[in-house]
């Protein structure tokens, strides 16, 4: 890294900083991409890129929901448990009761959205700490999943249901299509719709939002409902992926989701989140896992690299954007 070189390119001292502040994390993704493409032959195949997108789709869904909640100044630790609950519900609906696959999925996802409503209600109505609320509901939900499944795994042999993960739309796997659709939807909600503005305003300054006529109550609930809904969708994909309905699925999935949000520039204080940022965060995490597996890096180091990435992303954001604030 030639410091002198960069100095002479950017005559205006602030220009690089502003650029990096806005697109820094994208630049890092790009650098990773180039480095992997150059050094790992098997990385640069189309099928591997599709493979990565397929792998990140589940974390992606959860991360989008998480980012909305974090943007309101909260956190949703119940997402993993909600995935597991969906799995157990699907096991009962499809395999035990023989219900229609689409209907079962819709019901399971709606149930998760309802659980999101409960989370949101507890947070918004009683002003409880989101961390505490979702930490507790996560236990309840996971327990519910165990009750429903009697802690037994059900094999999801339904061919139609297996298509959720294995199905293709043209050359694109169905989970990738879903991720794409959700990305578009989240972009519209967060950047084009009233709700998105309300979410960001609520997280940015709750009192100011109230003084501007924003119903903080409903905004918070909406955020948790979105998170519940999306973790439900992720749960459906995960169940189809493992073709197994059991209560110990998706343990610890909230960590990767939070990591994706933070790497993508979502502020833990609330009020700052962008869909492209979170997408980049999701992809960076996917690249770390996939790239390092292909390189053959010991898995212990992957965990370390992920940790370093998060701190680096937060530092980058802090250093680059301090002046803008």
């Amino acid at each position: 890294m030639d410091k002198k070189g960069s100095k002479s390119i950017y005559t205006n001292k602030d220009e690089l900083r502003l650029f990096m502040g806005k697109y820094g994390i994208g630049v890092i993704l790009f650098v990773m991409l180039i480095a992997l493409i150059i050094t790992v032959p098997s990385f640069r195949t189309t099928s591997n890129f599709i493979n990565i997108l397929k792998q990140v789709s589940i974390n992606g869904m959860i991360a989008y929901g998480m980012c909305v909640v974090i943007a309101t100044g909260g956190i949703d630790l119940a997402v993993g448990a909600q995935c597991a609950l969906v799995a157990c519900l699907l096991g009962q609906f499809i395999m035990k009761m023989g219900m229609n696959v689409l209907l079962s999925c819709a019901l399971a996802v709606l149930f998760c959205a309802a659980l999101g409503f409960v989370n949101g209600f507890l947070v918004a109505k009683f002003n409880m700490f989101p961390f505490v609320v979702t930490l507790s509901t996560q236990l309840i939900i996971r327990g519910l999943a165990q009750v429903i499944s009697s802690a037994q795994a059900i094999s999801m042999t339904n061919a139609q249901f297996k298509l959720v993960y294995l199905g293709m739309v043209g050359p694109i796997p169905f989970p990738v299509v879903m991720l794409f659709v959700v990305t578009i939807l989240m972009y519209m909600i967060l950047h084009w719709m009233k709700l998105g503005r309300y979410i960001l305003a609520t997280g940015g300054n709750e009192k100011a939002a109230i003084a501007s006529g924003v119903s903080v109550f409903w905004t918070k609930i909406a955020a948790y409902v979105i998170s519940g809904f999306l973790s439900g969708v992720a749960g459906v994909i995960l169940t189809s992926k493992t073709s197994s309905a059991q209560s110990n699925l998706a343990v610890g999935y909230e960590t990767d989701a939070v990591a994706a949000c933070v790497i993508g520039g979502t502020s833990f204080a609330g009020g700052v989140a962008t869909t492209p940022g979170v997408l980049i965060g999701i992809l960076i995490i996917g690249f770390i896992y996939n790239g390092m597996n292909l390189i053959g890096v010991n898995s212990y180091y992957q965990t370390i690299v992920k940790g370093i990435m998060i701190i680096a992303a937060v530092l980058l954001d802090l250093v680059m954007n301090r002046k803008n604030r």
Partner: peptide, 12 residues
Amino acid sequence: NYGLCLLRSIRE
């Protein structure tokens, strides 16, 4: 407290 969301843009 009741003025602006300082992290958001003037437009928003």
